[in-house]
């Protein structure tokens, strides 16, 4: 097997907030192109902060984030909150990144329509965010990210607010979509979700978050519902759980 292409290098990245609180690191890690990497760790350990640093929204206090992709970085971010514009319709919200890229309203609406359908929001194109449930808002936020055709997709607990059925369905959707090759960095609180989705799980310690385990997931070539029920899946979840517990104690 050829060594996978590195898309992004985290080189001794740390973050300290202006108030002196040390939030993260030092972290050294390399993201492999086309793979889905999950990040798990105790609440407040700096997972969202790490995602922001990777996206370039936050400069690390020390260390370096190096993009090694052949084409320039086209990031999309699903924030922990839906971050929708309250004055705009679902369609306008989902189409925003395309409009910022210079496409017309009509073009961008046509382009996002399939994504609105895929996240199960057809019929709500003209609704305002306040007319949606929390889960629906999150799905709109997801559609907005996917519609930009990113080469780096950053997801911060995107499914945490969803019911389990929708969550499972979107898990499978994400896998199907990810098979196309974009690199995904996925923060989750759920060990089960991490094992189901990820090729690799980075386990962070309690704040300031440091990498305490780099855990590979061994999955069948195509993951599907019945894998969720298998003994193999349960075993890997148990293993990851133990690593997470150890991480929470390693402060």
């Amino acid at each position: 097997m050829p060594t996978p292409e590195i898309l992004l290098d985290l080189d001794h990245v740390t973050l300290r907030w202006p108030n002196g609180l040390s939030a993260l690191g030092p972290i050294d890690a390399a993201l492999e192109a086309g793979r889905l990497t999950a990040i798990v760790g105790p609440s407040g350990c700096g997972k969202s902060t790490l995602l922001r640093i990777v996206a370039g929204l936050l400069a690390p206090t020390s260390g370096r984030v190096a993009w090694r992709g052949r084409e320039p970085m086209r990031p999309a971010f699903v924030f922990q909150d839906p971050t929708l514009m309250p004055w705009a319709s679902v369609a306008d919200n989902v189409a925003l990144p395309l409009r910022l890229a210079g496409r017309s309203r009509r073009q961008s609406h046509a382009a996002v329509q399939p994504w609105i359908e895929r996240v199960g929001l057809s019929g709500f194109e003209r609704a305002r965010p306040h007319e949606l449930s929390g889960g629906m808002r999150m799905r709109a936020s997801l559609a907005r990210a996917l519609a930009t055709d990113p080469n780096l997709l950053l997801l911060d607990e995107p499914f945490a607010a969803l019911d389990e059925l929708t969550r499972f369905r979107l898990n499978d959707e994400l896998l199907a979509w990810a098979a196309g090759g974009p690199t995904i960095l996925f923060v989750t609180h759920s060990v089960f979700e991490a094992v189901y989705l990820a090729d690799r799980v980075l386990v962070l310690s309690a704040r300031p978050g440091r990498l305490v385990a780099d855990h590979a997931i061994e999955a069948p070539p195509t993951r599907a519902r019945d894998w969720r029920a298998s003994a193999d899946y349960a075993r890997q979840c148990g293993e990851l759980s133990r690593r997470l517990e150890a991480a929470a104690e390693a402060a």
Partner: peptide, 18 residues
Amino acid sequence: VEPGLRELFALHRARPWQ
């Protein structure tokens, strides 16, 4: 302006007038 939306606009490289 909500900080999250500010970040979203920054991520997608919004121009000042946008």
